[in-house]
Design a protein around this nucleic acid. Structure first.
Lengths: 202, 202
DNA sequence: CGTTTTTTCATCTTTTAGGGTGAAATTATA
DNA sequence: TATAATTTCACCCTAAAAGATGAAAAAACG
């Protein structure tokens, strides 16, 4: 059974530990606790979390919001804000990051659980017909895909022909064919249909 | 075909036995009958059921709902409620556990079978990406697929070439091409890659 | 700055896919 | 038993995919 990896970004150790302990009891798994945004960025890069819990105000600044923006733009995982008594301006900025949920402190375990579930549900629904993330694919294969190979795979995913891919990427069809050839080698599949199948059941 | 293990949580022995007997006749397998929630938890832990049938009211209490919550949160297998004439409040609570289905007593074998199939199908779809049943596909398209067309689609799903399909089905490649041509028309797709994509996000 | 990886492209060949048309054999069913 | 639907097959053709080989730019990296 695949456990959900939760990244906790929270500068109050007591709260962070509490959450971490609770998560271990239900079948979530802590992907790490970050007490500042630098650590958060590092953990996002290296620990492959599935969802993040973000305190809006880390160490007095609004770093939680910065982390949220990076998550939304780059890591594309759902995130939930842990809010205490923030001012209106901070909350407005937080809203603009389109979070998957808010939990107001002090919160109970039931709130936390249902927020996590709802966020994961929403995220799963939004991404149900899309290709997994490059990092996710690369975790499952021997030789990692390059950026261009991943782009080709994504377009194969949408049923594009080599010609269409060449046009969209502004390169020759020969280039596309090379990428696809290497892609098939790395995925160890004979054709695009099985490539789609393989990546979908990753 | 791998047999599906069904856990029955039902405090009326007559009904429980009836269900158990019926399941043995179709290709399901009883993973045990629990007459109370304690036994249910024990069986969930030790008998690895694939799906559960839950009477909402076990021994006058609402233990069926508690069992459902644990299944959803911990065991993540699909479950179906067996309801009799429960009050609104109980039903509301049951709904909150997001069950995969309800069967209202008295129910016939056909209802039970179709509920089980539907629940297993939904769960399979949520967790991996195998090809849906023919009936499920036909509910979503204008002109229903024929048996042979569905067989071809299934093999396309596994990445087979027309040649391989012809060999497996002991027919000429021309026949396969005809089936696929009609398949594409009915699914309204231009090629096999998009066919896979379309059926997957049905 | 040199080395490695990635990205780019070409040319050639074989296989597979897909579209069009027609039609016979089989099966279901009214 | 007519009638309809399904399954079977044979041609035709063009487009697309895939495999093999080689190699030059471009970017990343130490």
């Amino acid at each position: 059974m695949s456990e959900v990896r939760v990244l906790i970004v929270e500068d109050e150790p007591i709260i962070a530990e509490d959450i971490s302990d609770f998560l271990e009891n239900i079948d979530f798994k802590s992907a790490g606790i970050a007490y500042d945004s630098e650590t958060a960025f590092d953990m996002l890069l290296n620990r492959n979390p599935d969802i993040a819990l973000l305190d809006i105000t880390i160490e007095g600044s609004r770093n939680g919001i910065e982390v949220a923006q990076v998550i939304r733009d780059k890591y594309k995982i759902p995130f939930i804000f842990l809010t205490s008594h923030s001012d209106k301006e901070t909350l407005d900025q937080a809203k603009k990051t389109l979070p998957y949920g808010y939990i107001v402190k002090p919160f109970n375990e039931k709130d936390l659980l249902s927020s996590l579930e709802m966020a994961l549900f929403r995220h799963a629904n939004e991404n149900n017909n899309s290709i997994p993330k490059l990092e996710q694919i690369n975790k499952s294969i021997a030789t990692p895909l390059t950026e261009k190979e991943y782009v080709c795979l994504s377009q194969i995913f949408e049923g594009a022909t080599n010609k269409q891919m060449a046009e969209k990427q502004f390169v020759s069809i020969n280039t596309i064919k090379t990428h696809i050839k290497n892609l098939f080698l790395k995925l160890d599949v004979p054709n695009r249909t099985t490539a789609v199948q393989k990546v979908l059941v990753l």
